[in-house]
Amino acid sequence: MESLSHIFAAGTPLRREALRDVNFRVETGERVGIAGHTGSGKSTLVQLLAGLLKPTAGQVLLDGVPAHGHNTTARDRRRRMGMGFQYPEDQIFEGTVFREVAFGPRNAGLKGKELQARVTWALGMVGLDADTVMERVPYTLSGGETRRVALASTIALQPEVLILDEPTAGLDPRGRDELLTQIGDWHTRTDLTLIVVSHDLTVLARTVDRVIVLRGGRVSASGPVRHVLSGTATLRESGLDPLPSVLLLEQVRAGGASVRIDRFLPEEAAAEIARALEAGTRSHVTRRESA
């Protein structure tokens, strides 16, 4: 992506610059997070990546080809990308869960046992039991189950690049953890390129290696996930809630213990604090002995 800018409704009173001068590169197999609050330009960026919008200036290149192009190469590139939209339940249109999830793979030429297996796999990825839900009518599912079905239909295409916009909104905690783990495993097994868009930093902490933070259409922070998610001031300025564990580590450090702020997964934070307390006690014992 090169010097990307996007202006909505240019030349009208509603003119709104959604993105300005955004540059980044995502390599094959990379896991990148895009964070920002509503209006930061996240969704515009995602639509540009998927070739759904044409940039006002600059360009989005997918494997060297402009994303919004009309030629067959551009179409082929877009076909290798899978998009999970923010309101996935709006994209459901088939009469049964099976037909919904099978729609994409069937169009791609899969049939019979192969198709069946792909649908079962995709439903498994989102934590649904294929036998129980396959013949259900989508509107009889609960809100969270509907989300999962919509996600499964994106995943069923087995794209090379998977873009997920707020993938865990509305999922229960177990569903969220399972989905993130499954996608992580999929990434490990293949060279899936993963782009996760979210304002929930706990989701990014568990899924990506690098984070780009958008604020008012510009990049406000970018770098390795541990570095970016430890920068609480910038995150707050960008309208994001820093991770609870990072806030706790900051407090513990302010209280005089020597801890690393970037141990941001809950299990890491607990281990880090326990270690620092232990070290504090030890140094106290040493001091007493030497006194």
Binding site: L248, V252, G255, G256, I273, L277, G280, H284
Partner: peptide
């Protein structure tokens, strides 16, 4: 945790 920390370092 502050209580813990104090307990650890107060003589």
């Amino acid at each position: 945790l502050e209580a813990e920390l104090r307990a650890g370092v107060t003589p």
